[in-house]
Nucleic acid binder design. Structure first.
Lengths: 362, 362
DNA sequence: CTGAAAGCGCTTACAG
DNA sequence: CTGAAAGCGCTTACAG
């Protein structure tokens, strides 16, 4: 029982002009007499005319739709990114369809194909692995696509990412300057650019500062709280224990906190902790997590800007790989504000709670 | 330079049949000879045929698109909800376009109209105020729409919400049972069903238990960390101070934690705290927030289920208002695990840190 | 400045 | 089981 919206044909009949003229008038094409345009627009408004974008798309070959493919829209990281993408897209008259792949390559492929059927004008992909044949295919065909957050090993597609290597380097160097030498890392999967590059930055920083590297101090797995908790529990239960842990995402850091709590270790007194992403909760008084800022909103917006240039034919042929600078946000969890003699110096130091109430993380 | 995808016409020519037969074969319409179908499908596969959904939509009047309108996709609450919506929609062949309104009614109206132009088959609205003329209009015209999370004052549209009144009642009753009498509330805006109903549940619980109600113990504003921090700072700085605060969202609770930290108050020793939503971070070891479970994912999925029924004409005429049961998740922040004599009994108790290291929230 | 024709890629409805 | 016709609501391209 919906109020049927009128078509340009019906407006044309009432206005006593052709459908063509109605189309021109409503699209503010200058090749219509002012008076005619006014008359048509008045009628259109009166009838509650709304253009049918599907019909328009069929002929114009433009849907004004872009596809955002993330690992999980329910994940804070991707949802903050999504907001930047949405705002920039809508500012330019585009709407966004989202898909969550849970990091599965097959699913990614399925969704890319599905979105092609839907007729999207381009893709923002935030959940690629180092190797994604379907994405290379898109890039080879010069279909508009921009990678955000993660990139391919073969840099065939346009991308906007943070310098993950440099970010990790900043973190580890800072920990070293704070006096820590036994530094563990819990990172994301090595088949993701973020997972592997943050690991490489960690290794480089250790090497440059002549710090011993322990195999036991590395864990690779999903960027999740569960992985963080499990890996930290294992790492901290061994004989040779890290004094500091670099969690390659804030979510992993949350898991490390859970593990430390269960083991009776205080952060930062017994264990320094640094995350990555600067997700909203990390600034909370109780969490107070030192982390690396990601500028997710801006990254998403910039990705859309580049995508729109591609869609509008500003394809200069060359591939655009933008790398944003990371920024270290120092908070309490890395313990750098602790007096030097309070910092963990060996792996057996467990200060009893009542001797240092003031420095407990709040 | 994109590989042009073939149309049914081209397939028809190659297969030596009509476009109609191709259409039937590819849609697995039984009125095609098995042999013909096989032949057509082989050719289609070979040419990499992909149906053009835009063309299909234009004639079928179905876009297989639904619109999700939230306050902010970057907000964890809405993004978790979005994931439930996405999964259920895709399971049924639908894709989702999202829009963030920042709770602005005009923006909501603009987006609803925009999405009608795009041709969505229905709406999931998670960001309505108590009064939204545009939504009533949709409902009156029987356009498929389902409210989720929040509902209208006039229950004209289908909805899936949690029982906010009961949830708040549970919280406050629990605090009372724990021995608290001076209980403050920091809630969302009173023009949102969630904001007002949680407040009313709070008032009811106080009344039923004969607890004095103080005007100073109420704050109403946005469901944000900033509001939580500001309101808590004010509430806790007064002479007459609450022993417990019911934050009507976990985000507000994060703000209360920040405020407490700055004022040197420990949670739960100096101040009991309960949130609402059971957002992911609330279970973290450092946060450990007692809260009300929302089942966001399920709520979203159920909303889509109802929407699809509406789209497919299962409109029984009557309005469906589903109310889900809330569940209280008791964690450390409400202090109910503290021995009775450790609980705050007056508003001047500030225990010094070193006397109770063991009970500090970790 | 205005319009008639053709068509975007499909499906519905009717014939056979 | 197969097909010719018509049309979804617009816009592009060509005439005048």
């Amino acid at each position: 029982m919906q109020n049927k919206v009128p078509t340009i044909k019906e407006i044309a009949k009432i206005a006593n002009v052709s459908a063509m003229t109605v189309s021109r008038a409503l699209n503010n094409n200058p090749r219509v007499r002012e008076k005619t345009r006014k008359k048509i627009q008045t009628i259109a408004k009166q009838l509650g005319y709304r253009p049918n974008r599907i019909a328009r798309s069929l002929v114009s070959k433009r849907s004004q739709l872009i596809s955002l493919i993330v690992a999980d829209i329910g994940n804070q990281y991707f949802s903050e990114l999504a907001r930047g993408i949405e705002d920039k897209a809508r500012e330019n008259g585009y709407n966004v369809i989202f898909c969550s792949t849970d990091n599965d390559s097959e699913t990614l492929k399925t969704y890319v194909r599905l979105m092609m059927e839907v007729g999207v004008d381009g893709f923002i992909l935030a959940a690629v692995r180092l190797k994604e044949p379907i994405v290379e295919e898109l890039a080879d065909q010069h279909f508009p696509v921009v990678l955000v957050n993660r990139e391919l090993k073969e840099k065939k597609a346009n991308s906007v990412v943070i310098d993950n290597h440099a970010g990790a380097y900043l973190v580890v160097e800072h920990l070293i300057k704070c006096g820590y030498e036994k530094i563990g890392i819990i990172t994301g999967a090595f088949n993701l650019s973020t997972g592997i590059e943050r690991y490489e930055g960690y290794r480089k920083a250790l090497g440059d500062h002549g710090i011993t590297f322990y195999e036991d101090f590395i864990s690779q797995g999903p960027f999740t709280t569960e992985h963080g908790c499990k890996a930290a529990t294992k790492m901290l239960s061994g004989k040779n224990r890290p004094e500091a842990i670099f969690a390659a995402s804030d979510k992993i850091a949350l898991g490390v906190m859970d593990a430390a709590g269960k083991l009776g270790l205080y952060i930062p007194e017994d264990l320094a902790l640094v995350g990555f992403d600067d997700t909203e909760f990390s600034s909370n008084a109780k969490i107070n997590l030192t982390t690396v800022s990601q500028k997710k909103y801006e990254m998403g917006a910039l990705g859309v800007q580049i995508l729109l240039d591609l869609i509008n034919g500003q394809d200069h042929g060359s591939v655009n790989n933008i790398v944003l600078a990371p920024e270290l946000i120092i908070r309490k969890s890395c313990g750098c504000q602790l007096p030097r003699n309070k910092r963990p110096i060996n792996n057996t130091a467990i200060v009893t709670p009542d001797t240092r109430g003031n420095t407990v993380l709040r």
